[in-house]
Computed example of a mutant assay.
Amino acid sequence: MSDTLLTPVHDADGEPFWEYAARGELRVQACADCSELRFPPRPCCPHCQSFDSAWRPMSGQGRIWSYVVPHPPLLPAYAARAPYNVILVELTEAPRIRLVGNLVTDPDAPLDSVPPDQVRIGARVRAVFGSDGLPRWVLERP
């Protein structure tokens, strides 16, 4: 096992997501024909089978749908950061879309910046983007 932190896997379908994130924008793939939002990105709409898509801007607002605090961390590189949270966020504009991330105090804060006992299902959060371009989440009202 490596001591390297996990990094996103970039593929042709998801590359626009990461390009927008690097600019501080949260966007989700939408079918250009039926307007259905989808995540993770894929080449074909699962609703109408269209191959035409667009990237729709999201407000970045959502709520914590679920979370976990890994015990122990699965990778050695994360051991020094434990305990830390991994949250699943339901987007306000698209409740069927849920994004995985970390709840932090500010965009470049460490993964353990929010104590696990302060994470609550249903808490309102908004997306922020660290200097590495990764989306993270902060509480709307800390």
Rank of each mutant, 00 (worst) to 15 (best):
M1G: 15
D3N: 15
P8S: 13
D11M: 11
A12R: 14
G14W: 00
W18A: 05
E19G: 01
R23V: 02
L26Y: 00
R27P: 02
R27M: 03
Q29S: 06
Q29P: 01
Q29K: 03
A30I: 06
A32L: 13
C34Q: 10
L37I: 07
R38I: 02
P41H: 10
R42L: 07
C44L: 12
C44Q: 13
C45Q: 02
P46T: 09
Q49P: 00
S50N: 11
P57C: 07
S59N: 08
Q61P: 01
G62N: 06
I64Q: 02
W65P: 00
W65G: 05
S66N: 13
H71L: 11
P72G: 12
Y78N: 12
R81M: 15
T92C: 01
A94H: 04
I97Y: 00
N102D: 05
V104M: 04
T105G: 08
D108P: 01
D108R: 05
L111D: 06
D112W: 01
V114W: 02
V114G: 04
P115V: 08
P116A: 11
A123R: 05
F129D: 04
S131P: 04
D132A: 09
G133S: 13
G133A: 11
R136V: 01
R141K: 15
P142T: 14
P142Q: 15
